[in-house]
Structure formats: structure tokens, C-alpha cells
Amino acid sequence: MTPDLSGMQVALEGDTDVIVRRSFSHPPAKVWRALTEPDLIRQWMATSGYPMTRCEIDPRAGGSFHYAWAGPEGQSFFFSGPVLKADPPHHMTHVEHFNGDTAMAATITTDLVAEGTGTRMTMVMRYADAAARQMAVETGMTDGMAEVYARLEALPLSG
């Protein structure tokens, strides 16, 4: 599962990690802002079908974040969790729970390294074990959960 879409790589490493790599044509300071300022986060994490209803982040060690979306049929969902480490504009480690379920935690390490005049971003999403990662990757629980829900609900499931 390593699709390469315009320079983006998604890779599985070891038993528990999903790694997403992407380059940006702007320096780490700007990328950091886009990743940590709610007004900017909303511009790229929300879509017309899935507006964000809550977007809060305190990007410091001991801080936390809470991102919530409303889906087209009124279904809402959120990701939230503590920020463990932050070293602007290069590094952040945070823990992500889906819909407040602390049993499904992913620890996400984001590194922004200057690359010429741009930035190389590496995100490592670490799950509790291989099964949790498999679940997250194969079912889309790392991102786009609402779309996944919508599509699964559209499946002609019997029983």
C-alpha cells in the first residue's frame, strides 16, 4: 500500500507505523503555521461536504487539540487528544483519539525539515499494535472517517 500521488508517499513500517511523506514548496515556518493555526487549519482540513464545527489547538507540550466535523447527513465526528511535544517550526508529537475513544490511540509525530526553499514533511502515525494499524489503514480510520462511514453505510449490507 504505497500509492505515490504527486510526490506523496504513504508507507507501512514495522508492525505499528504508517508514514506519510510530502514535500511543500514553502519553508517550515509557513507549513508549521498552516498545521497549528485554527484559521489556516480550517482552510485545508474542512471540505464543502464536511465543514469543521470545532477547530482548537494549543500546540505546546501539555496542550491539546480538538477538531470536529459535521457530515452531509448530520453525522458528526471528532479527533482530539493531548500535545506531547512541540518544537516550532520543526516538530510536534500528539496523540489522536477518534470520537473520544482512548482505546484507539495513534501517536503522531510530525517533522518538518527545510528542503531547499521548501519543506519535507514526515508524519509517523504509530498505533498500539499491528491489528490496530491494520484496522486504521484498511478502513480509513486515520483520516476521512466521515467519507468512510458514508460509503460503508451506502454498502448494501444484509442482516
Binding site: 500521488l5 506523496m8 514553502h26 503555521r33 480509513g140 483520516d143 467519507e147 468512510v148
Partner: peptide, 28 residues
């Protein structure tokens, strides 16, 4: 749906590219 999942990241990053393009360089 699986194809959609794979493209979600890239769609989000393309939007992020646009956000970055609009940001002033002042605080670099």
C-alpha cells in the same frame, strides 16, 4: 472507497499547498 481513502491525504495536501501559497512570507 479504498481509492477514496488513498486520495484523501493528497486532496488535503493540495488544499494545504493553496493555503501556503496565500500566506505572506513576513514571518519566515
Amino acid at each position: 472507497w479504498l481509492g477514496q481513502y488513498r486520495s484523501l491525504w493528497e486532496e488535503a495536501f493540495r488544499r494545504l499547498d493553496a493555503v501556503l501559497d496565500d500566506l505572506p512570507d513576513a514571518e519566515t
